[in-house]
Structure formats: C-alpha cells, structure tokens
C-alpha cells in the first residue's frame, strides 16, 4: 500500500548569493551592531511551491507538465523527502526511488562499479548485491559496455543505466524527472513495460516531463503546473485536451 498526501504545501527556497554566504558578512554585521543587517535581507526567498494539495494512491501514475521553473522538479524533490516543506503537511507511505539526474554516477568508474556503488547506497547487503548487480546488468542490456568507464557512455546509455538501477529494487513510489527522454525508442518501450508492471502491482509513479507524448504513454493522471501551483489535475486525456487548447 503506497500513498502520497500533500495538503497545502508551500516551499520557500532560500537562495544564497556570495555575499549572504560569507562569514565576513556575518562578522561585519555583528561588529557594526546590526547596521549591516541588510545582509540578511539579501537572502532571496523563492516561492517554489505555492499551496500544493495532492493525493496519490496505489496505481496512480501522475505526469507533471509545465514550463521551466514551474516547480515540477521541486515538487518531485518534496515527494522524495529531499526538501522539507516550509509549511503544510506532507505524508508518504512506501519506499520511494528517484531518477532525477545522473550526477550520482562516478564518471571514471566502470558501469559495473557504478551499479555496485548505487546498490550499496541503498543499503543492500553484500550477498544480495551480487545477484542484484547481475539483474541490473541484464536489464540494462549494456553488455560489454559495463566494463568500460561510464564517461565513455552516451546520454541514452547513461539513462539506461540509471533507470535499470532505480527500478532494480522494486520501488513502491517511483519519481522520475525528465532523464528518460534520452533513451532510445526500444529502451523507452522496455522502460514503459517495467513501469506498467510496477503500476499493476499497485505502485505510484510521478513523472515530470516536457513531452506530452511521454505523459500520455506512461501516465493515467496529469497535473499542469505553473509558477509553483497546480492549475489543473485529473485524468490525462481530459487535462491535456483542456491544456493544449
């Protein structure tokens, strides 16, 4: 049983410029008896999410659609538990797995080493790690490339590797941000089948994408986001037809 529940979630994101972040500004502020307190006011706060209310249950595959900076990625990071909401309630049941960016990969290590590293990060013990590594390697179909350093991979191959690891230990909640787009058609189909499988076993998928096609392909619900708000949410066909008009 997986569930995500957000009730009026706001997220203020402080942006530190070099001034606000330096120790000197703090010391100067203290030394001048607060005359230089403006340093504090310089910390810009961005309202990244503004009153998000969302309820996702087993079998929901939600597509997040919206222009750049509309809060899609931030919302995903809240769902992943990475960003604590500034206010509002956020509750999640079920283990979440993310596929956000591929910065986790060690570019100089080989594909195998990366798989092992990524699996170890998920707190899997040594025996299970071995069988899992084999599974991931088989699913990714990268074969001999797995013995090469990851820096030699193409963007599509990186996406394959990331996706294979992220879905290896079946997540109850799967959060995906854009990366999948780099995979080729064949792998997209395969990924689609696995997502299909996951969601049939009552799991939740949240996918942020610019591509309406991907949302149509993978999702059954869709939320339109703009400036940190959900404008419209509902069954994918209804929402997309309203939105594209």
């Amino acid at each position: 049983m997986a569930r995500i529940h957000l009730d009026n979630v706001w997220l203020n994101y402080p942006v530190y410029n070099t001034h606000a972040q330096s120790l000197r500004s703090r010391i100067v502020s203290a030394a001048t008896g607060g005359i230089a307190r403006r340093a504090r006011a310089r910390i810009l706060e961005i309202q990244a999410l503004r009153g998000i209310t969302l309820d996702l249950r087993d079998g929901d595959r939600l597509g997040l659609v919206g222009p750049n900076g509309s809060g899609k990625s931030t919302l995903l990071k809240v769902l992943a538990g990475l960003y604590p909401p500034s206010s509002g309630t956020f509750a999640r049941e079920g283990r979440a797995e993310t596929l956000f960016d591929l910065s986790l990969l060690d570019m100089d290590a080989t594909g195998y080493e990366n798989i092992q590293l990524l699996i170890a990060l998920r707190g899997i013990n040594a025996e299970r790690r071995r069988t899992l590594t084999a599974e991931v390697a088989a699913f990714s179909e990268l074969d001999n490339f797995l013995d090469l350093p990851v820096r030699t991979y193409s963007a599509g191959m990186l996406a394959r590797l990331g996706f294979s690891v992220a879905t290896a230990i079946e997540p109850e909640i799967f959060l995906v941000d854009e990366v999948l787009g780099a995979g080729d058609q064949y792998f997209l189909k395969k990924a689609g089948r696995r997502i299909e499988e996951l969601s049939q076993r009552s799991r939740i998928l949240v996918l942020a994408s610019h591509s309406m096609d991907m949302v149509r392909q993978f999702c059954n619900r869709c939320a339109i986001m703009r400036r940190g708000r959900i404008l419209d949410e509902g069954p994918v066909q209804d929402v997309l037809s309203r939105y594209t008009n």
Binding site: A80, G81, L82, T98, F100, D101, S103, L104, L121
Partner: peptide, 13 residues
C-alpha cells in the same frame, strides 16, 4: 563535495 551533493539531491539517505 560533488558526490555528497549528488546523493543529497537524488536520494533520501
């Protein structure tokens, strides 16, 4: 550091 940032931005550990 790079790896630490990548982990914190991708995984809830």
């Amino acid at each position: 550091d790079g790896t630490a940032q990548a982990i914190q931005k991708n995984m809830n550990l």
